[in-house]
Amino acid sequence: MLTEERRAFLTQRARQARALTLEAIYRVGRGHIGGTMSIAELLIALYDDVMRVDPSNPSWPERDRLVVSKGHAAPIVYAVLAMKGYFDPKLLDTLNANGTTLPSHCDMRKVPGIDMTAGSLGQGLSAAVGMALANQMDHRDSYVYAIVGDGESQEGQVWEAVMLAAQRKLEHLIVFVDDNGCQVDGFTGDILNMRPFDQKYRAFGWHAIYVEDGHSFDQILDAIHQAKQTPDRPHAIILNTVKAKHVPGAENTYQSHCFSLTREQLDNSLRNL
């Protein structure tokens, strides 16, 4: 259980991550708002409370790693990395600009702290499995975390990776499914329903936890704690999230995947955070 003070601190950090992200996307004119806002609490929980990382040494071999398979969430990952001191937050002003070191999708060669390049959906979990295998082979106790979208889970490669992780008993691999229920053209349930994720992962030999409120720090951290107590299996934490969380008028809409914010919407959102 978090203390009141800690919960307030983390909540404030998520607010700041959302604000930095929305402002950066507003400057660009258009961007992936829905799927960045749905993982704000998860990223803050990971970077502020869970992950063993050293922002002054991003390639530290003993670090925990994060693969953001839904690479379009890059703007909020960059915001959190900047907040952690991986690079100057002023760089966020250059998001997507020609020549920027902060491109639209996660890029490990350009952004300190990004552990894997992403952008084409359904591929990140395989890389996370490779990292967890390398750690297992080298007897490192580091964890590998991956964030996978619910929509991208329609890609078959995700399930190839899921099967291999169970086969190799990758107990230091924790996957978060951002189950916000929306994909580009509609609601996931209307297009190709993937629910229930937890039962699917269990059927594939994983330890799976369903988190009722994917924006609750207490629930996210409790699930991670439970995962770490469970040996011999990889872990899937299904986060019931809200696409475009805290953006008035856009919450829980699939149209929020990628859109242009007006000045008024930005101001409303910042007030609403």
Binding site: Q123, S126, A127, A132, L133, A134, N135, G156, Q157, E160
Partner: peptide, 25 residues
Amino acid sequence: QQHLNVGIAEQNAAGVSAGLATCGK
């Protein structure tokens, strides 16, 4: 210890190898 058979899953083989390479393999 240096061998892995991922099964009949080439796409995953490529991705897993990418992950291994990020760890110096």
